[in-house]
Design a protein around this nucleic acid. Structure first.
Length: 601
RNA sequence: GCCGGGGUAGCUCAGUGGUAGAGCAAACGGCUCAUAAUCGUUAGGUCGCGGGUUCGAAUCCCGCCUCCGGCACCA
């Protein structure tokens, strides 16, 4: 009955710290989904890591006079800490500069090459005159041959909108150092996407459970498929596993090609690290396993078209896919079951921009506010179906008027009353119709919220959870146990017992969204153990002696279950504290001023 | 230009054929156990504009206006 669920989360790029828009799009929704399925008793494997190759990282390294690896190390650490502090419960959050990832990437490249899905082609490339490195089209600017705009980019003119080729530009120059680029022929490898067009079309066409824009966008993309380059003239990347290239340091596998392979390599690493090297196959070569990918809308086609094409081409082949004589022999790797794409978050009405100071980094945010407050906002008001705006005023309002007032206050008023008057879960008397009805409504709500979560409808799920908390507040207002207790202690005990049972069930309902406060509530209610945690870092040593840090957790020890409360009568409560902090209105002004000083400073 | 998405109450957003919704903001009232939190009542929209299909349209079709993304060697 227990299902294998792969939660594949987009890989954050390690050229800087990540802002809250990044985690809004994939990190938080993926974690809510993973936590729900674990509570349900399903076998979840949630994997990701930092994406550490590519030109942007080499540019940061050049600027600081250090190596790309040093930059990747720094931001892998910062990003990993951010995700830990947000409570994102990865089974493995690793990185793309591991020996394991190189091996898996090269195996896929080699296998696709041998099967004829990777083709060689000579192209004209642009190189920096000073460093000899490839210059991506967007790092070249010059005068537009069509409209004469003198800051047109190599790929497009922002003035007239024309699609350009870098060789079209008049007086082309590098945006990095101002020098004219050198154009010379260079051989590259291309993934033969058109070879998979029919298979992909048939497959995507059947995915009616995808969000409509994901499916439509992908089908449309298939109409004009071209072979796509998967190598670059760059020293920073995974070596091309062919004898004439493997030792060259001027041509590597292109970063996007290795990044998507991370989903597979991180799964394999997870299995190796737990001492059961074939364990990943229960997700990847099990036809009943379901794979859910979480990312921003800019990444859709990588997950619906390109990565599936790679998986189709690889099948059950290569060094990792084959399982000679084993249970999974000949079973091809699983395609995505659902691709959950989010829209974008904006900041006070503008696009996030590190250079312009319109940004709030995760670590900065969490230094002043709680992770659960951020998780609440990003879920209830996040870019699930359309672009949404983060404003400090709205953050403070949602925190104070919704999270604190509705759920936090329900917990607080219930716990303080019971703790003060009984000190333990009171013995109820005969339940009235109103009592039964409320318990029934909350129990039904557990299923409703669960169904919404399973369908990746996070905003609707959290709204329903909040509505249920409101129902319990209404119940208390009607029953007035603080009055009843003056004449009828047994009836008051019954009312508080009912409220506690509801709070205990709501604790489970809120756990995927608000893991930190749910754990505290769990303890106030007198329970022991981790309802859903904790996360931990583990230092991993590979065969070549190098070490790296992995974010993981002991999720098999969670005591939480997606089931209605079975709160034992007589259980001793612990002294309660408010679950959430109310924020002063002054926060809005302070944060806007802080942003203003970043923008001008 | 091409492709995609949005335009619903003052604000933020739900709602894919069957009498227009939620939260907040507003007005009034109740309660006072609780982080002055809570509960109730009221008010508030020709669902961007025009046309069409239908017994019936925010929802389907056509046209238009407007905003926002993507357009591939960016990850």
């Amino acid at each position: 009955m227990s299902e294998h669920i792969l939660v594949a989360v987009a890989w954050p790029y390690a050229n800087g710290p990540r802002h809250i828009g990044h985690v809004a799009g994939f990190g938080v929704p993926a974690d809510i989904f993973a936590r729900y399925h674990r509570l349900r008793g399903n076998r979840v494997l949630m994997i990701s890591g930092t994406d550490e190759h590519g030109t942007p990282i080499t540019l940061v390294a050049d600027k600081e006079g250090t190596t790309p690896q040093a930059i990747a190390d720094r931001y892998n650490k910062i990003i990993g800490d951010d995700l830990y502090n947000l409570g994102l419960s990865y089974d493995t959050f690793t990185r793309t500069t591991t020996a394991n990832h190189y091996a898996v990437t090269q195996d896929i490249f080699r296998t696709l090459y041998e099967r004829g899905y990777i083709i060689r082609k000579e192209t004209l490339g642009a190189f920096s005159a000073t460093t000899g490195r490839t210059l991506p089209d967007r790092y070249i600017e010059g005068t537009c041959p069509i409209c004469g705009y003198d800051e047109a980019r190599g790929d497009q003119c922002d003035n007239c909108g024309s699609q350009l080729d870098p060789t079209d530009l008049i007086n082309p120059r590098s945006k990095v150092d101002g020098q004219p680029p050198v154009f010379k022929p260079t051989e590259h490898f291309f993934l033969d996407l058109p070879a998979f067009a029919e298979q992909l079309r048939t497959w995507i066409d059947q995915q009616h459970h995808w969000r409509p824009n994901v499916r439509n966008f992908s089908l449309n993309f298939l109409k004009d498929l071209k072979p796509r380059p998967i190598t670059r003239d760059l020293e920073w990347g995974v070596p091309i596993p062919l004898p004439e290239y493997v030792h060259r340091d001027d041509k590597k596998i292109y970063v996007w090609f290795d990044a998507v392979i991370g989903y597979l390599s991180a799964s394999i690493e997870w299995a190796i690290n737990r001492g059961d090297p074939d364990a990943w196959r229960a997700w990847w070569q099990n036809p009943d396993a379901r794979h859910f990918y979480f990312m921003g809308k800019d990444n859709i086609v990588f997950h619906t078209v390109i990565w599936p094409a790679m998986l189709l081409g690889y099948g059950a082949g290569g060094q990792f896919g084959a399982h000679p004589g084993g249970k999974y022999e000949g079973i091809p790797l699983q395609l995505p079951y659902n691709v959950v794409s989010s829209e974008f978050l904006t900041m006070e009405g503008k696009k996030f921009s590190s250079s312009r100071g319109i940004v709030i980094y995760v670590n900065d945010f969490l230094s002043r506010y709680d992770a659960d407050a951020l998780r609440y906002f990003l879920t209830i008001a996040g870019p699930e179906n359309q672009d949404t705006d983060f404003t400090w005023a709205e953050f403070v309002r949602r925190n104070n008027d919704e999270l604190v007032a509705t759920w936090g206050n329900l917990v607080n008023r219930t716990l303080t009353n019971v703790y003060k008057n009984f000190g333990q879960v009171p013995q109820p008397g005969q339940l009235t119709a109103a009592d039964e009805q409320l318990l029934e409504e909350v129990t039904t709500g557990l299923e409703t919220v669960g169904d919404l979560l399973a369908a990746a409808r996070f905003k609707a799920a959290l709204s329903e959870a909040m509505r249920l908390a409101g129902q319990v507040n209404i119940y208390l207002s009607e029953q007035e146990p603080w009055k009843v207790i003056k004449q009828d202690r047994e009836r008051a005990a019954t009312i508080w017992y009912v409220a506690l049972r509801c709070v205990d069930t709501l604790k489970i309902i809120f756990t995927p969204f608000l893991p930190f406060s749910s754990q505290r509530l769990h303890e106030y209610l007198g329970y022991d153990g981790y309802i859903a945690g904790p996360l931990l870092f583990r230092e991993v040593t590979e065969a070549d002696g190098r070490t790296h840090r992995v974010l993981t957790g002991e999720y098999e020890q969670w005591v939480g279950r997606w089931e209605p409360s079975a709160l034992p009568v007589g259980q001793t409560l612990r002294p309660p504290q408010p679950l959430f902090k109310k924020l002063d209105e002054q926060v809005v002004e302070d944060e806007l001023a802080r942003m203003q000083s970043r923008a001008t400073g």
